[in-house]
């Protein structure tokens, strides 16, 4: 046998099945804690401000990636934005067709640097447009858990 020898019959090819038995438990972090608590407790979306670079980070960061300042100033950025880009998702993670296609968008909020990736709701795929004004729809306060899913979706404003 040599390096260039090839297995020509699939029956000869041995495959060994196994897994990587891990799960992940992520803390949301210092900036994340403030961001998600604000959504959960007060229903507001906040960004963190770097005064020297004149940027409001969304999602907020605890530091400015440009000048490395620790960011201490936080502002509410409102719940209204515009669709910067979007896609219509027709299949699930496993590749099966979805009964109801999902619209996934990057939503820019005026004055904020960055944006939120989220679902669009209360709108049909064929009605969706880049530049469309949208607004966050929050879950009722009692159902909010401090997660990005506390925002149900964004709807046309």
């Amino acid at each position: 046998m040599s390096l260039v020898e090839r297995i020509t019959s699939f029956a000869d090819a041995k495959v060994w099945y196994g897994n990587l038995p891990i799960e992940s438990l992520y803390t949301v972090g210092i900036a994340g804690e403030k961001f998600f608590r604000a959504i959960k407790d007060r229903g507001v979306i906040m960004g963190s401000v770097c005064p020297s670079c004149n940027l409001t980070y969304l999602p907020p960061m605890m530091y400015c990636e440009r000048c490395f300042a620790e960011l201490e100033e936080w502002v509410e950025v409102g719940t209204k934005g515009t669709v910067y880009t979007y896609t219509v998702v027709g299949v699930s993670l496993g590749g099966a067709p979805l009964e109801q296609p999902e619209i996934l968008a990057l939503i820019k909020i005026e004055g904020a640097h960055g944006g939120l990736v989220h679902r669009l709701g209360e709108v049909k795929p064929e009605e969706t447009e880049i530049g469309m004004p949208v607004e966050a729809v929050l879950k009722p306060k009692k159902d909010r858990e401090g997660s990005i899913l506390d925002i149900k979706h964004f709807k046309p404003a």
Partner: peptide
């Protein structure tokens, strides 16, 4: 054992401290 900071926040804290220690900026 467990930090509240995310990984990138930990990286920032150490990096910023290293720069501050020699009075350098990014």
């Amino acid at each position: 054992r467990r930090a509240q900071e995310t990984g990138r926040e930990l990286a920032f804290q150490a990096s910023r401290m290293a720069l501050d220690s020699c009075e350098m900026t990014l």
